[in-house]
Amino acid sequence: MYWKSMTALALATRTAALLRFSCTQLTIDRVDPLVNPGLSPSPHLHQIIGGNSFNITMDPAKDMPAESACTTCQFVEDSSNYWTAVLFFRARNGTYKRVPIVPNVGFPGAEGGMTVYYMQNGLADYQQNSKVTAFKPGFRMIIGDPLTHTAADANRFRQVTYTCLQDPGTRFPETKNLPNKPCPSGIMANIRFPTCWDGKNLDTHNHMDHMAYPANGTFDSRGPCPESHPVPVPQLMYEVVWDTRQFNHPEDWPEDGSQPFDTEASE
């Protein structure tokens, strides 16, 4: 799966800050201005949130967030755009249905979308006092791969996980693969982007090489950045809650026990 961000949100480097805000859906469309700029329709279907200047081109020479007149995010100072894969359920009879997205706990009245976090330290660290470098205008990055179907592939993106929700407040355990059983309150995707920047490039050809995970450990454990990517940046994290409850009937699941949830229908 692809998880994408185009952001210019400035997080102060010398203040203690943890931002958590909800963003409703801007649109669901076959548009991907990073991987398929200018192409309509794109091969990939995405849920898109954020500033209303989003378009199929997103010219990197322009400060696109500054061109937005409004945003679907509760934190209105953020006109960045974020987008994710769209999940489908493949039923036993071969039909596909799109899985709806519901708001996270703590955001009553929100309409689907995602929860976005910016952190200077891990989520459990209320001090938030690590020094990080703010994202620069025009910064772009991607995490994930639509062709990821093996454990080895998934481990390339070691901080993308899933949670089988026993209730809306469930947060553990996290798994590297989508749950292979019905989840009482849906499935949450936990998407933590790399937090080490090369300090030079706002983007690269694959939208990933300018970023890296810590050399060891994680952002939460304050793992050091590798020499190739020495500049720590804020932890950008998404939480996406898919409402899979309508697909929890065992008689609808594939008889061979294969995973019924995928993005294949969007390819």
Rank of each mutant, 00 (worst) to 15 (best):
G186Q: 02
Y238K: 07
V76F: 10
A151G: 02
S258T: 02
D78C: 11
P43S: 11
S185D: 13
I56L: 13
L45F: 13
T115R: 10
A61V: 00
V102M: 10
G144Y: 00
S228F: 01
K4Y: 09
H210I: 07
P43D: 07
L123C: 11
V86G: 07
P260R: 02
T163E: 08
N52C: 05
Q159G: 00
R192Y: 00
D125Y: 08
D167K: 10
K200W: 00
A215F: 01
Y117F: 15
L236T: 14
T72I: 10
A16C: 15
S80A: 14
T150C: 02
F107G: 12
Q74C: 08
S53M: 08
H249W: 07
L178E: 03
T24C: 06
S5Q: 12
T57H: 14
S266T: 14
D220V: 05
M188L: 12
L19Q: 15
N36F: 13
A212W: 00
Q25T: 15
P184G: 00
V105I: 11
K131L: 14
H44E: 09
I48D: 07
M114L: 15
Y118T: 07
P173K: 06
L165G: 08
G50P: 04
T13F: 01
K200S: 07
T163V: 15
G112L: 05
P108L: 11
T148C: 09
V102N: 03
M58K: 03
T7S: 09
D198I: 01
W242V: 05
R92C: 01
Y126Q: 14
D125E: 15
C23H: 13
Q128V: 06
Q128I: 06
L45V: 11
K131H: 15
S79F: 15
A8Q: 15
V116Y: 13
R245S: 10
I101Q: 11
N93V: 04
K97W: 06
P260K: 01
A16E: 13
M141R: 06
F261S: 07
A12N: 15
N180I: 00
P179Y: 04
Q259M: 12
T133N: 15
N155V: 06
E267D: 08
E267N: 14
E67V: 01
N55F: 06
D125G: 11
R140K: 14
R98S: 12
M208K: 12
P234S: 11
N52Q: 09
E251M: 06
F21Y: 15
G109Q: 09
D63H: 03
K136V: 14
G112T: 01
G109D: 14
L123H: 11
D167N: 14
M208T: 08
A8M: 09
L123R: 10
F247C: 05
R158A: 09
F75K: 07
D209H: 13
P33H: 03
G217W: 00
K4F: 11
L18W: 07
Q25R: 15
E174W: 00
V35E: 08
P103G: 09
D243C: 07
D198S: 12
N129L: 05
Q235K: 10
P41H: 11
T13D: 12
G223S: 04
D198Y: 07
G50W: 04
P33F: 07
T24R: 12
L19K: 12
K97N: 01
T163S: 04
T7H: 08
V86Y: 01
P41E: 04
F139H: 15
L202C: 09
G186M: 02
G113F: 03
Q120A: 14
S5P: 02
R156F: 02
I28F: 01
G138Q: 06
Q235N: 09
P224G: 03
